[in-house]
Design a protein around this nucleic acid. Sequence first.
DNA 1: CCTCGATCGATACACTGTATTGCACAATAC
DNA 2: GTATTGTGCAATACAGTGTATCGATCGAGG
Lengths: 245, 245
Amino acid sequence: MTAGRDTTDDEPTLVWERPEPPHRPAPSPLDRDRIVRAAIELADADGLGAVSLRKVATALDAGPMRLYGYLSTKDELLDLMVDMVYGEITSSAPVGDDWRATLRSLAHRTAQAARRHEWFADLLGGRPHIGPNALAYMEASFAALDRAPGFAGIDAVMQAVSAVNAYVIGAVRSQTSEQRAERATGSDKQQWQTAYGPYMSRMLATGRYPTLVKVFQDATHPDADTTFDAGLDYILDGIATHLSP
Amino acid sequence: MTAGRDTTDDEPTLVWERPEPPHRPAPSPLDRDRIVRAAIELADADGLGAVSLRKVATALDAGPMRLYGYLSTKDELLDLMVDMVYGEITSSAPVGDDWRATLRSLAHRTAQAARRHEWFADLLGGRPHIGPNALAYMEASFAALDRAPGFAGIDAVMQAVSAVNAYVIGAVRSQTSEQRAERATGSDKQQWQTAYGPYMSRMLATGRYPTLVKVFQDATHPDADTTFDAGLDYILDGIATHLSP
DNA sequence: CCTCGATCGATACACTGTATTGCACAATAC
DNA sequence: GTATTGTGCAATACAGTGTATCGATCGAGG
């Protein structure tokens, strides 16, 4: 009405059909941190398998190839995700004076982070972690032991750190595996029984695993935290007993 | 010549062009073990990424879909691969009377198997291992501690086994990661220096990692076996000191 | 000899990571 | 002012993945 333009004339009005710029629709500056955060959000919600460059890109209103301006490969994205979690772990790290307390705190924070980000365990230890935050994690561990008395030289410190790290990696993986199993059965033990029960019953009935039968029957399966702490204490005690007096 | 048959007559001679049956070209019975072995061969040679159902199938002179008669999913194949390695580990397992010797032996055999099969570490601990050989591994661990004096009940046994397993998983992963790094640099330390050297130098120069600097400078980096054994001893000692007298 | 049921191959589909290509704009040179 | 250059993005393309579906072909049973 007002302008008197009808859509019957299609050719000239086509210019009106483009209220948005043909290209560059608000390019949305898009730095690495936003990319990594989007990827982590996807992974937290739907698992590592849901992290594809296409999905990350569309979550940021961009084409897949756009990411290659900030990343050179998908593995690099995964590395950055891992390092961001290390950032969560080392942020506000308590600088205790006791080396055992410091290592325990780092281990606990790692386990907590792995509970928040189930995919973390899948990436942990798979390739060298040398991002800035992973280095900060290592620095905190080494520094705690380096300050402590009794450690005979830097080599002893390194062996202790390696041992604790190995344990944490394995324990976190086990914890995540258990967490997944629990969640997959709908937080209901009955389904697990019906899913794996027959197989396990058949296996245990073969008589080849007498001790496992006892374990299944008698053991009170403690929660993951207790097991995690118990193992951690084994290692820390083992390290402590090897200190020079 | 001899038979006087020319290829100009194509129609009737076509039957000679089929020396092999049109379908079922020697169906090659193909059981699960052969499939798993082929997959392991591929993984050993070119890594886990080279294990695709198509490649495994063609290695067995079969179409990809043929495998689905024996496997229901690719993850199942990976599980079977893992369990076959557990079979290598537990085959001819020494039944020592000393629980520490038994656990140490199992750990060492695991580490050796992981060296033979670099992909093993990637799969280790990622999902529950409940194959027959993995169960045998667990049975051996549990039995060793169950026979041993000093363990107060099956719960103590379970916590000890969990701790050792977690350590072994993490240590094997670290070992494999290191093995890959060494191999990737052409078994030459110079290349690693030029590849990651600049980045590491920059990072260490920031002054945020003073202890890491010391470690890089002063530490004599021992071989993987020594570190592995040292950590294992920490755990075993820690467990031993927690025994009831 | 014929039919039925199982088995296997071919095809197809949605999806992956990434190389390449081409185009629309910004900034620069005259 | 116009012409040119360069840059960054999107579109396209490709090889490869796991797996569902569909026919054809074979053996066995009547």
